[in-house]
Design a protein around this nucleic acid. Structure first.
Lengths: 314, 314
DNA sequence: CCTCTTGTCACTAATATACTCACAAAACGG
DNA sequence: CCGTTTTGTGAGTATATTAGTGACAAGAGG
């Protein structure tokens, strides 16, 4: 297989060529609910029916670590002021004899209350309280993870500062976070091209406005409407229509990979992302170091005027 | 079995008598890691070794939804700048051929980056970025849960406003949240007794100071030192030494259930919690309504001077 | 050219979870 | 009071997930 670092400047979608493996949509991901999480929220056409909402809630609860029975029971209880094992079993399809176990786990998690009468009656904790409890729980876990890991790190000295490293990441959230980090670290110049308005989050806008005080900020868009949006949100930036339309290209069929974002900071680190046609999953490649192959390509693109104001407004 | 609502005022630990089922420590909880979560953080004596930290991190990651291999791989990578499948397999005990799958899942979750060279090299996303990604992920899930459920609710009209309902809950976080809610809702009077200083969280102090503007606030403690602490933290409250010492009682052996908190708001809702001797798990019973049996008992305790200033300072 | 490494597949073993049934104790309704 | 139904528990089986193994083709590197 050809190493991507040695490629000459591309004439068709960058990510594909630079890192073909990213394109095959057949990653053996854990076939679990988790996958949807990193992507965007499931597309909703029109209004959700109640049934949909409930199914949805059950799914999310499982993602949050509950078992199927537990999730069903909680959702069942959410529709009742109070319920018995029998009622619950009937409405949730959970075998009655298993309701008790499920409820006990839920109680231990702080999600339901039990009335120890006979028959026992159960009720869900008020929704706000429940979500707050879940939040607290996860916040606690993340914190413990942080504590456990930040004390350790770095076992080896094998820090190949090699200049040819190109890394792949995926997941919208992760790529957003990396984008944020890079913008924050930039000291000279930021060149950003956005391929879709959904990428222009509040968080990102805030960071850009923070950054604009210290660095040159060039932001490109693929469409004029997006350019306007950006210019409004980040008034002090220089915006332009990207010369990268070819990323959608002549053969821009519907299930063609779309450009996500391109970020070049201080002419030494670059991040290019694309959005998978089917899953809408965002995938990115990332390189750092002035001499890095990817970065060199990006600089070359700039030199050719593809990453600067070709048709500057104002 | 006697119904607890019909009991006469107790002369030994309230929670036990009122709700004996709470006492048996043999709940068939899911024998999973989750249990520790609702309780307090594992007790740390002295300093953690690095190995401990790592084991810990692996455990927490699994609680956060990763599988064992995934967790081990991530922790392994956290100790390296960069690693290959072989290296990882050696240091983490994960079979080499399974490292690839694990890493791909991690990558999809935004926790590691992959360098598509040969051999492939992996590296963990910087810790702050990783935790932020996890946070975002869970925040998203909780939000989706909220959306899915708050539109629905209430299927039946069977709202027995019965006055004799007493509910059991457990889990420190859940009980804290309920305490907060009750304090916030109180409009006249709050009587609070704390059995342990660990229960006097910042959050609680803030809420109490908020509340003190609108309602009478009486706070009791089991020890003088705790009373002082409270008086300092919430200057406008009236504090007292609780007449409930008997809750620790003459037969206060070491593995005796300890009083957690007692909260009576507007003389119409009450929450009493205890702390399990072994697991330190907090369990509570909760009743509402002026005529509620539990609440009546609590009012009687007050009338006897057990829940008011017996030996008021100042 | 040969050898060791690397990545993928297809498989078995172990475990966790979903699902059933038998039964004793408690509630209920004459 | 007695027979009947409901309720809670325990002990199972079946099924899906996850942990763990081995065979093998392709690539890297002398």
């Amino acid at each position: 297989m050809k190493r991507f670092q040695t490629l000459t400047p591309p004439i068709s979608p960058l990510v594909h060529i630079l890192c073909p493996k990213l394109s095959d949509n057949t990653y053996p991901y854990r076939e679990q609910t988790n996958l949807r999480i990193t992507g965007e929220h499931p597309v909703r056409l029109g209004h959700m029916t109640t049934t949909d909402s409930l199914e949805d809630a059950i799914e999310v609860l499982q993602q949050l670590g509950l078992k199927e029975y537990e999730a069903r029971c909680f959702v069942g209880l959410s529709r009742l002021h109070t319920g018995t094992a029998k009622q619950l079993s009937e409405m949730t399809e959970v075998p009655r004899t298993r309701v008790y176990d499920a409820i006990r786990v839920l109680e231990a998690q702080g999600l339901v209350e039990i009335q120890h009468s006979s028959p026992q009656r159960f009720r869900a904790v008020p929704l706000d309280e429940a979500t707050e409890t879940l939040r607290d729980q996860y916040e606690g876990r993340v914190e413990r993870l942080h504590n456990a890991l930040d004390s350790v790190e770095i076992i080896d000295g094998d820090e190949e500062k090699s200049v040819q490293q190109v890394w792949a990441m995926s997941g919208r959230t992760a790529i957003e976070n990396r984008t944020d980090q890079l913008i924050e670290k930039a000291s000279e110049e930021i060149v950003l091209v956005l391929g879709d308005e959904s990428l222009l989050t509040e968080e990102l806008v805030a960071r850009l406005n923070d950054a604009v005080a210290d660095v040159d900020l060039l932001i490109g868009a693929l469409t004029e409407s997006l350019q306007d949006q950006i210019q409004t949100a980040v008034p002090d930036a220089t915006t332009f229509i990207s010369g990268l339309e070819w990323l959608h290209g002549e053969n821009a069929s519907e299930d063609e990979t779309a450009i996500g974002r391109l970020l070049l900071t201080d002419r030494s680190t670059i991040l290019v992302s694309s959005i998978m046609p089917g899953s809408k999953e965002e995938q990115a490649i990332f390189g750092e170091g002035f001499g890095n192959g990817l970065v060199v390509i990006a600089r070359r693109l700039m030199a050719q005027g593809l990453l600067t104001a070709r048709d500057p407004k104002q």
